[in-house]
Design a protein around this nucleic acid. Structure first.
Lengths: 204, 204
DNA sequence: GTCTATAAATGGATAGAC
DNA sequence: GTCTATCCATTTATAGAC
């Protein structure tokens, strides 16, 4: 017995092990045997908590989506300048502070989307869609104040998110080891915000 | 025997079947049995053409990347206006004319990226990276003519691609059935180009 | 509740006949 | 080259003892 952590319920051990393995290797490649072993628990115990493999996977991924989808603030800070508010939003929600876990969730949800269609919707609603709505509400407010001029703020929100996220996330997702430094990413973010604000600012 | 097509080599039948099934269901879920059945061929015949499952998958996906990565034009048309050239680029390479097959290739490459790392690089180089370089060259030209003012044209190219691709591709990738019409997508594209050109135009 | 052992099914790969 | 039949490993899921 390798009971390092002082006292943790069997269920927690199973969840933790399943999380780790599913995110590493996806649904098919991860066996219930491997999960039981990783959790220091017998396979029968796994089945006493989760009816079968599909249920276990669904439960794990649902909670991962809920927890990693969106970090806290649900509005953009109205006290900051336009550029500063957007920068803060980009840093927190759609970009530079993305953890390896968030990246793995993204990849696994996408990979298993055919077998688990409702998972795609869960992820989408708690991640990109939520971020879009928050940003769109802010943009709409700025439009009504006459600061910005945008035809469709919802689409513009998605376009901003794409502009910030794509150059940073896609290479990483495809395993392209960019030799970008934090300073590089900071400059890219500044450029994105500059293009977006200049391109949407109301003509005075 | 269901030999509908007049005369096609066994190898072609296998490739075609494997293509279809791998793109539909990914690597693990697709069995060699299923491929043989779909191809109207015995399993032994599959193994006489392809050493094993990994080799078959690698060959299939490599050719899919080469064929669907990037459509023909390798420069932007210098005779068009800035906006028209960008619109044409966006339509051809990163957006609205994306086929279901291209979307499936994207998804499978991403999904199996851990087991087949070099596949990610193959896809990247023949798709997004190539598109980026073509666009970056065009932007650089426009900068040197004093039409645009951009600090880092390579990053800007990726940002433009993200702005165009994200709102359109991501929901589809996650199985979100957008009720967007072609007219909606056209308007979104126009808005993206407007934001980008206004945001990067040199101050006169 | 938890474990060891096993049943039932599936999948990758091969042997040998034609 | 192609087929049928089969081997062997692995995997999900369950039975029965403690």
């Amino acid at each position: 017995m390798n009971d390092t952590s002082p006292r943790r319920s069997k269920c927690d051990q199973i969840v933790e092990a399943a999380c780790k393995l599913f995110l590493e290797s996806g649904y098919e490649t991860t066996s219930m045997d491997a999960i039981a072993t990783e959790a220091n628990v017998s396979k029968r115990t796994v089945y006493s908590y989760f009816e079968n493999k599909e249920v276990l996977f669904g439960a794990i991924m649902k909670s991962m989506c809920d927890n990693t989808g969106c970090t806290h603030p649900d509005t953009l800070d109205p006290n900051l300048s336009l550029k500063e508010a957007l920068k803060e939003f980009a840093r927190n929600m759609v970009g530079l502070t993305q953890t390896p876990e968030q990246r793995d969730v993204f990849r696994v949800v996408l990979a298993e989307g055919i077998k688990f269609p409702e998972l795609g919707k869960t992820f989408w609603d708690s991640g990109p869609e939520l971020a879009k709505q928050i940003l769109a509400a802010y943009l709409t407010e700025q439009i009504s104040r006459g600061v910005l001029a945008i035809e469709d703020p919802e689409v513009a929100a998605m376009q901003f998110i794409g502009m910030v996220k794509w150059p940073h996330s896609m290479p990483e997702l495809f395993g392209i080891k960019g030799n970008t430094t934090p300073a590089d990413r900071q400059r890219a973010l500044d450029q994105a915000i500059s293009i977006f604000t200049e391109g949407t600012r109301a003509k005075s």
